[in-house]
Design a protein around this nucleic acid. Sequence first.
DNA 1: TCTGGGGTCCTAGGACCC
DNA 2: TCTGGGGTCCTAGGACCC
Length: 410
Amino acid sequence: MNRTILHIDMNAFFASVEQQANPELRGRPIAVTGSGHRTVITTSSYEARAFGVKTGMAVWEARRCCPELIIVIGDNRKYTHTSREIMAMMLDYTPEVEVFSIDEAFMDVTHSLSIFGTPENIAFELKARIRNRFGITCSIGIAPNKLLAKLASDMQKPDGLTTIPPEGIAGVMERLPVKDLCGIGRNTERQLALMGIRTCGELGRCAEERLTRKFGILGPRLRRMGQGRDDSPVVPFGEEAEVKSVGHSMTLERDIEAREDILRVLLRLSEMVGRRARRYNVSGRTVSLYIRYADFFSSFGRQTTLKNYINLSDEIYRAALGILDSVTLEQPVRLMGVTLSNLNHQAEQLPLFEEERKRLFATRAMDEVNSRFGDTAVTFGTLLPEREQSGSFVIAPAWRPSGIRNVDVK
DNA sequence: TCTGGGGTCCTAGGACCC
DNA sequence: TCTGGGGTCCTAGGACCC
């Protein structure tokens, strides 16, 4: 049976939200960043893009492209709030809404057409509602599957609406560069080019065996992608696979070398990971430490698997410290990351012993204060004097609002 | 004057057990 | 005391996404 899938992609989402919140920014080249001097451009307005400002650029680099560029430090809460309301609007048309990122979603409207008519009707109405309510635009792609809907939403920006009907697939794919497909990155593009494959048409006609030899189990999927085929379902709110890892990393404001500086960052990261794990009600057996050196290009990760599941900050810290002490650092450190994986999602039980129970309650109280007043309102004593030394946490455009599952469904 | 942060999936190789 | 093979668990690293 033919499905009808919509992909909604908010245009320059963070920048648009900022321009809407502050009329002085409208029509001007702006870029949303984190704070700190090692931050990069997260999103830029179309006015800034005209000057060549791109996501991922260092701020100084962006300024060189566009001297009048206005830098706005991002505000996660604003974007999460707007995102959540927009996603809730989508639920008026179908329960099958998949949050792909903070500014992208898929909708399976196959079973909604008897009520709303054509998918274009739904798209026009949704675009109008988002524009009226938030003053921002989006691009929507309509197609028989997610791969093509995403491709279609990319074809017209900003404020676009593109349909790829079943009978139009072959024509679209024939000359499309393989890189335009979601799932084919720079590396796969290069490997395919070495095989003489540059367009989706060529990819779709390539012998499956040849692709499998080169790409393993990815081979058959690549071929299907080249043909514009994709059976993956739209996975609605609350039915997503359980989270598999919880991690934080940060680029430091300056490279550090002294052990006490490194331990301070390690403790802070462990605390952040532990707090989030506890909020999700998960614990994990594997702790990973990731370090990027001052030269930016060299880095490594090490992991250790414990006998027991943990989620207390100091347990995570101890495990990470054990890893750190098992390696010899070769350069000053630019970035550190701590991740908890091998997760267990079962509800926690109250510990048997008074001492442990006290520790758990103290941890909970700290989590509570932190979640209300920000990242490091209360934390372990060693962190406080150096709070300003670590980098800021830039929200990524792909950041999934954690509370999205709690969207009220009418 | 450089280049963020949070994830998932896959591969390859080693240890260990049957 | 040798041989091969399968399965599971673990680690390290890379590709890809937003």
